[in-house]
Each structure stands twice: as C-alpha cells, then as structure tokens.
Simulated assay, not measured.
Amino acid sequence: MFPSWMPRLGRSRDWLVGMVLLALVVVWVETTLGGSAVLAPWATLPLSILVGAFLLTATSYLLRAVRVRVYFAELLAGRRDFLLVLRLSVLHNTANNLLPMRAGEMVFPWLMRRYFGYGLLAAGASLGWIRVLDLHFLGVIGLVVLWMRIPSPWWGLLVVGWLGLLPLFWRVGRLRSKVAGDGVGRLRRLLGFIAAAAPQAPGTVLWLYGLTALSWSLKFVGFALILGHFVPVALWQLMLGVMGAELSTVLPFHGIAGSGSFELATVAAMVPLGVAPAEALAGAVNLHLFLLGTTLLLGFTALMLPVPNRAKQGH
C-alpha cells in the first residue's frame, strides 16, 4: 500500500474506526449544542490569551525536540542538526495528533532511520521510554491537582514518593549486561534490548525529566487558558479536564485527529467534578479546535525546515 520508504500509517480498520468516531462527535455536538453556539465564544476570546496559549504550546514542542536531542546525544554527537531534530519531533507530534489509533507513533522511528540512520526497533524502544517519562510526569500533575482540590501535606509526600521512582530508569538501563548475552532465551534478549534503550546515566535521566516536566507544564497552562475561556470553572477543574484530553492522546484509543476520543475523555474528566455536560462538551470541542489549529500551523512550519542532503539519502 505504501512505498518501502514510507511508514505504515495505520490499518484500514483503524481509519474506519476513526471515521466512525469523527462522525459520531459531529452528530453529538450538533444535536446537543449546535455548531454555531459552540463556536460563538471565539468572538470574545482575547487575542492575548490566544497568542499566549499558542506560544506556550509551541515552546513545549521546542522542548520536546531538545529532549530528543538529549536522549540521542551519543548518536548526534558532533552534529549540528538541531533544526533537523526539531523537524523530526514536530512532525512526529503532528502525526500523533492527526492519525488514528497511535499510527502517528510510527513516524518517529521512521524519521530516526531516514534522517540519522538509526534502527527502527531501537528508536521504537527509546520512544517507549520517552512515553514512560511522559506518563510519570502526568502522574505528578494529577497529584498536584488533587492537592489543589483538597489541600493537605500528604499530597506533597506522595509527590516525593512518586519522584523517588526515577532512579529505576537508570537502574533498568544497567540491567542490559544481566539479561542479555550469548545463548540466552528470546525473552531475555528482548528484555536486554529494551533495557539498552533506556537512558543509563542519572544526570541524563534528570535532564530528560526536567525537559519533560517543563514541556508538559507549559502545554497544560496554555490549554487551561483556552479551556477556561469556554468553561468558567476553578483552575483544578480545568487542569483535570486538560489531563483527560491529554490522556486521550497518549493512550491507544484515538480517533482521526483525536475526534471523539479527545472530547469523550475531556467530558469524562470534567463532568464528575460538577461541570455541566453541555459546558464540558463545548469546552472540549473548542480546545480540540485550538489543538488542531496549532498542530497544523506548527506541522507546516516544520516542513519548511531544511533537510541536509545526507539526511535525505537515509533509508
């Protein structure tokens, strides 16, 4: 279906499910709220909030590219190709936001091989560890939001305990020599391969985690600014709404451009907090429109970044 140099961008079944979700969300919005009523608040959105939220989101994308550069510092040592890394990272995030059922994740290992000659499986395993870092920090945000809702020093202790899991990252990386070797079973070779992809130096893990924390924090603030205009509720409710939206983009259940899954996850996160379903749905749809607009603008900008000839010759 695709040329040999192209990644497989999802199965037919994934696209079918994605189209069904897209159709359902359009019907859901139109029958529940009406399209014009949902979009009307954009007319009163202050330009400062829109531009500020966009800049925060764009900066989070930039920090994700820095994280990739740090993660693959050994591979990229001596190369001054940060713009290429930025292009790779932004296009990967663009594909992730637009393609169904996590098919966009395939773009990362494909571009790593095409631009830098890195193995597909090794890049995929590294991306898996990056996602673990993402999910770990989302757990931190969840604990902080709960502290905002029910202030207590116990939440601080839980955050410290949760952060105390970070040393496991570099310890896993050091397991390679213990689980890999000649003549061992297939499972042990697989575990050794996965362990080898993990960051192994404590300083590297902390640097990567700091970039992860800053990137997610900026994005959450930017999204909360937009969502707060459409759903005037407390900050902790907005943050949990954004949390639901973001989890929909990290977990496997994902429609075309996030349609359906994004709205459902946002509404599911906010309604139990006392937000009216209609308000939550309107906020979710408009936040999603902001995400898609930002994604397309940054994605087209990334395509304008130069690709060195040696990278174009990659496989």
Results as ranks from 00 to 15, higher is better:
residue 2 F to W: 14
residue 4 S to F: 05
residue 4 S to H: 07
residue 5 W to P: 00
residue 6 M to A: 15
residue 9 L to R: 04
residue 10 G to P: 04
residue 11 R to G: 15
residue 13 R to V: 12
residue 14 D to A: 12
residue 14 D to F: 02
residue 17 V to K: 04
residue 19 M to N: 03
residue 20 V to E: 00
residue 20 V to A: 15
residue 26 V to W: 12
residue 31 T to K: 11
residue 32 T to K: 13
residue 33 L to A: 06
residue 34 G to P: 03
residue 38 V to C: 05
residue 44 T to M: 05
residue 45 L to S: 10
residue 47 L to D: 05
residue 52 G to Y: 09
residue 52 G to W: 05
residue 53 A to F: 05
residue 56 L to P: 00
residue 60 S to D: 08
residue 63 L to D: 03
residue 63 L to I: 11
residue 66 V to W: 13
residue 67 R to P: 08
residue 73 A to S: 15
residue 74 E to Q: 14
residue 75 L to A: 13
residue 79 R to F: 05
residue 91 L to N: 05
residue 92 H to Q: 10
residue 93 N to M: 11
residue 95 A to E: 00
residue 98 L to P: 02
residue 98 L to I: 14
residue 100 P to W: 02
residue 104 G to D: 06
residue 105 E to K: 06
residue 107 V to E: 03
residue 108 F to G: 01
residue 108 F to V: 08
residue 115 Y to W: 08
residue 119 G to F: 02
residue 122 A to G: 11
residue 122 A to V: 05
residue 122 A to D: 13
residue 124 G to P: 02
residue 125 A to R: 15
residue 129 W to K: 01
residue 131 R to V: 13
residue 135 L to I: 13
residue 138 L to F: 15
residue 142 G to Y: 03
residue 147 W to Q: 13
residue 149 R to E: 14
residue 149 R to Q: 15
residue 153 P to W: 08
residue 154 W to G: 09
residue 154 W to R: 05
residue 154 W to D: 12
residue 159 V to H: 06
residue 160 V to I: 15
residue 161 G to P: 06
residue 162 W to H: 15
residue 165 L to G: 15
residue 165 L to P: 06
residue 170 W to C: 04
residue 171 R to I: 11
residue 173 G to D: 04
residue 177 S to Q: 12
residue 185 G to E: 09
residue 187 L to M: 13
residue 187 L to C: 03
residue 190 L to I: 09
residue 194 I to T: 07
residue 195 A to C: 06
residue 196 A to W: 08
residue 197 A to R: 01
residue 198 A to C: 14
residue 204 T to C: 00
residue 210 G to A: 11
residue 213 A to S: 12
residue 221 V to D: 01
residue 223 F to I: 00
residue 227 L to D: 01
residue 228 G to T: 02
residue 229 H to K: 10
residue 230 F to D: 00
residue 235 L to K: 01
residue 236 W to R: 10
residue 236 W to T: 07
residue 238 L to A: 05
residue 244 G to H: 03
residue 246 E to G: 07
residue 248 S to W: 05
residue 250 V to M: 13
residue 253 F to M: 13
residue 264 L to Y: 11
residue 267 V to D: 02
residue 269 A to W: 02
residue 269 A to I: 12
residue 269 A to S: 14
residue 270 M to E: 03
residue 270 M to K: 00
residue 275 V to H: 04
residue 279 E to A: 15
residue 281 L to G: 01
residue 286 N to S: 10
residue 287 L to I: 07
residue 287 L to Y: 02
residue 289 L to D: 02
residue 294 T to Q: 08
residue 300 F to P: 02
residue 307 V to N: 06
residue 309 N to I: 09
residue 309 N to A: 14
residue 310 R to E: 15
residue 311 A to N: 08
